[in-house]
Structure formats: structure tokens, C-alpha cells
Simulated scan of single mutants.
Amino acid sequence: MKKEKITKPFTLVAAIYTLYFILRVMDLFILRTDQTWVGEAIIHKLLGIVIMSIIACRLGFKPEEIGFSKGKNILKVFNGLAFGLSVYGIAYAAEIIMAKAAGSFDSLRFYVSAYAIDKNSGNRTGFLFFILCIIGNVINVLMEEGNFRGLFPRILGEKYAFAKATVITSALFGFWHIVLPVRNYVDREQSFSGMIVQCVLLLVISAVIGLKFTILTKMSGSIYMSMGDHFFNNTIVNLLHVVTNTGADEMMTVRIFIAQSLSFVLVLIYYCKWRKTNAFNTEREAGFRAS
């Protein structure tokens, strides 16, 4: 298909994002599938995958142009999963050490829960719930990585440099996550001040995580490694729980902060080295051509 000329990439991304955001609000406030046996708000994400595919096709983008490259994709997903496992292994160990120091650690338990911002809720051990958890998180990463690290950067790349496009998509990804604390406030499960604090924290943390995923996509040449890391990040907190004498996952925010801070620093360090190596190789190739 012939590519459509994109004259106003930011306006186009803003329009698509607004549509997604409206669908997200409707899903979380009206349908509330995440509060049912499904345990995940997947309707707007399924629609997001469909809309992303239609828009990419309409603009003439091939799958590899929005991150779905051909090649060793299983290996890239595995690398993302392994990276997530390594940083969360450290984060869980730190949480357990802190709980033992406080004399409150009970055990690690494996069951399905629903994410609830400050702590997980539910305790489901049926096989069906594990399958639903996996499927829900696969749908989630396909929609979010496909759009925020695939389609949006590709559209913005028509006019903006990588750094600027990354800032825009990371900010949008951060804002994407404020809906849940707003719903908690509307449902009177959270105070207004608590909602503001949660919104600010989620916006900043999610934007930083989005930046990390974008850098992973840039270095790996596709969205598959970021998908693997994203999937592990979301799934592990729903399956593996630190139980203390007074409850479960009481320090989940600390655990997530440790894992994400560590992973961001590691990715940033590697990215700086990767850029220097690429710049050196480019200069060397230019020298060879000149000679």
C-alpha cells in the first residue's frame, strides 16, 4: 500500500491517543471488566490493537516499521523476560530482607491477584485464572508496546528526532496510567489528596518506564524485548506475593520502585555505551569510504 503523507504527526498521534484514552475511561468506569472474574480491563486494549492495525495499514506502514520486525523475535522476548526476572529477583530479595528485619516476613506465595495501585487484591488459585492473567497481560503489552513504542514513534519520526519523539510518547504513557487513582477517588476509595499523590507518582514512574521501554526498542531494533520486559513486570506482581504477618504485598510499591529504578539505570548505562559504539563504527565506516 502507498504511504500516506503525514503533514501533522503530533496532531495525528494526539487524536489517536485521545480515542484510546476515551475507550480506556469507558472500560474502567463503565464496563469495569477488571473488577469481574476476568481481572483485567482488556476491552479498550483489544480495540486498541484493532485500531492500531487499521491505522498502520491506512498509513502504509509495514509491520516491521512499527516495531514488529522479522528475525529472532523469540530470543528478543526471552531477553526481555530474563532482564525483568533479574531486576525483580533483586527487588523481591530486598523486600524479603526488609520484612525479615522488621520481624514480619511470613512467606512467598503464588496465586493470581488483581492490580490495585497500592496493593494487589484477591487470592485466586484456579488454573483458569492463571490462564486469564497470562492472556490479559499479553493483550496489554501488544496494545501498549505496539502503540507507545511502535506506531506513535513511527508517526512522530516523520518530523521529530528520536529524543523529542521519545519524550512525547513517554509523557503520554505516563498520563495513560492516572485513570485508576481517579476512579478510586470517584468510588470514594481514596481521598482527593491521595488521588493527586497517586496520579503524580504514577505519571512520573510510568513515564520513566516508558522511556526505558523506548530505549530498549531503539537498541534492539524492535518492540519484542520491551514486550518481554513489560510482560514480566506486569505479570510477576500479579502472581508472586510477599506475605507478612499483617497482610500481603504491603511493600509492593517499594518492590516496584527498586526493580524499575535498577532496570532504568542499567538500560541507560548500556544505551550510552551502545551510542558510543555506534558512533565509532559510523566514523570508521566513513573513513574507509573516504580512503
Rank of each mutant, 00 (worst) to 15 (best):
P9T: 08
F10H: 00
T18W: 10
I30H: 06
C57R: 14
K62L: 12
S69P: 01
K72I: 02
K72M: 01
G80N: 06
S86L: 15
A91E: 10
M98E: 10
A101D: 06
A102P: 05
D106T: 14
S107D: 12
S113R: 01
Y115F: 04
A116T: 04
G122P: 05
C133L: 13
I135W: 07
G136T: 15
V138N: 04
R149D: 00
L151S: 09
R154I: 08
R154Y: 08
G157Q: 08
A161S: 13
K164F: 07
V167A: 06
I168D: 05
I178F: 05
V179I: 06
N184L: 12
D187V: 12
C199D: 15
L201R: 02
L201M: 12
A207C: 00
K212T: 12
T214V: 03
T214N: 12
L216R: 00
S226G: 15
D229W: 08
N234W: 06
L239S: 01
A248L: 09
E250T: 15
V254A: 15
Q260V: 07
S263G: 03
V267K: 03
Y270N: 10
Y271G: 01
K273D: 04
W274M: 00
R284E: 08
R284K: 11
A286H: 06
R289P: 11
R289C: 04
